[in-house]
């Protein structure tokens, strides 16, 4: 697995260093301009998750997966290395984004807002959700599939918001989000802070494991 991670770092470093650096600064600056800490975390984690995925789409672009898989590795090792590298990159890039957002002059967020335990857990949750959903899509359908999904999601969101505003939908999107928030708050009150965070970590780990299992299932069946 170490060799696979090195392979990706060596072959993509010329893309990663300038692109990733500029991107992190830009997202950090953007995050510092947002007033809501939750919105700031949501947007910056989503943009942060794109960085490792861009690396993996480059392999898709050059159709280089056949070369990686003809090296002395199993497909399981290839997928596992992608998850490990993806998480390592997301954590590093997110840390850079947070530091820039906190340090940027004239920022609308307080340092405590984005470095609180709640914000950190929220960021981990968003990173897990985004990465866990996008990785199997990327593995199965490649770059085109992933972007088609993201665009489709935006279109769906716009349609739902439009229908919701006109009260055509039989449910309220805002109501669902508020209910989830209440459920989490209630869980926090019942379990207490340590138990609540442990529960969240367990859920996020389970989601990551399920995503990994799905990606592996798909990649093992993929003809290169």
């Amino acid at each position: 697995m170490r060799n696979l991670i090195l392979l990706d770092l060596i072959l993509h470093r010329k893309f990663l260093l300038p692109f990733g650096g500029i991107y992190a600064v830009w997202v950090g600056f953007y995050a510092s301009r947002v007033e809501s800490p939750r919105l700031s975390v949501f947007v910056s984690t989503f943009l942060c998750c794109i960085i490792p995925l861009m690396i993996f789409t480059r392999e898709d672009k050059f159709k280089a997966a056949a070369v990686s898989c003809s090296l002395p590795v199993t497909r399981k090792q290839v997928v596992l290395s992608r998850y490990v590298l993806g998480w390592a990159m997301m954590l590093v890039v997110y840390a850079v984004i947070v530091l820039i957002a906190a340090a940027f002059p004239g920022g609308k967020l307080k340092t405590g807002d984005i470095l609180s335990l709640n914000s950190i857990f929220l960021a981990l949750a968003f990173l897990t959700i985004f990465f866990s959903i996008l990785m199997p899509l990327l593995v199965r359908y490649g770059m085109v599939g992933m972007f088609a999904f993201l665009i489709g999601l935006q279109v769906l969101g716009a349609v739902v918001l439009f229908l919701s505003a006109r009260k055509i939908l039989p449910f309220s999107v805002k109501g669902i989000i508020v209910s989830i928030g209440r459920a989490l708050a209630s869980l926090n009150a019942h379990l207490g802070a340590p138990g609540y965070y442990l529960f969240l970590v367990a859920v996020l780990l389970a989601l990551s494991a399920a995503s990994f299992a799905l990606s592996l299932f798909l990649f093992k069946r993929k003809d290169l």
Binding site: L11, A64, L71
Partner: peptide, 30 residues
């Protein structure tokens, strides 16, 4: 699989490596 492939040298019909990498980079990675 991994044990077998460590003893195989493979030449692809259409070589598909990361195109913007140099030969030195490719060697260092492989």
């Amino acid at each position: 699989e991994a044990e077998i492939k460590s003893r195989i040298g493979f030449v692809h019909e259409s070589p598909a490596y990361i195109e913007d990498a140099t030969l030195n980079d490719l060697k260092a990675a492989i």
